[in-house]
Amino acid sequence: MTEATTLTTTAIGPSRWNGGRSPFKVSWGKLMMWYFLVGDSFSFASFLITYGALRFSYESWPAPTKVFSSFPLLEGVKLPLMFVSFMTFTLIMSSVTMVLAVHYGNHEMNRKKVVKWLSLTILGGIIFLASQAWEWTHLIVDEHMTLSQNPFGAPAFGWLFFTITGFHGFHVLTGVIINCIVTTKVARGDYDRKGSYEMVEKIGLYWHFVDLVWVFVFMAFYLL
């Protein structure tokens, strides 16, 4: 831990900032991102808790294997949970590509590699969003599960599903947009000039958080 004292001895210019030390050895930006995610997890939690409470107030609940049994282009074939498995893997993989981007940014400051992995992450995000769009359309148009009615059983299932996956999808969408911006900046060499790829790490945290939330959304709607 480099104490600030070493800085004060250099006296002039930049060393004017002679503060103490960060207890967590992280920059404020990363810390802020972490705490933002803590806060955001509470908003997701409020939705998932809503889901739990309402579900417990029903005698019966639609079986996920019945609701989610279709696959694009394979009409009439019952493939329970197969499509959502695909979605889940897309998201996990995009998380992996993101963590690799962060890794090559932090450890090697390797612009090309970072751009490559970030682009793959964006691709994963887009595939996920497209899949979700298909799933929603299918449920609404073909299965007639809407906000007010649900042929599979408890009406609450429908609106809870659309609200919570919608809120998650919104997070994915913002993540994709932010990723695009950061990727351009990486490609332009902004962070090389800055000498730090921390921005990639910060958006990485956000992206992983979106993945993390999906674990619980997935569990709530597709497994339990």
Binding site: I49, T50, G52, A53, L54, R55, F56, S57, Y58, E59
Partner: peptide, 9 residues
């Protein structure tokens, strides 16, 4: 909240 949900039932 789960306990509450149960009691709403």
């Amino acid at each position: 909240l789960l306990a509450e949900g149960n009691s709403w039932l």
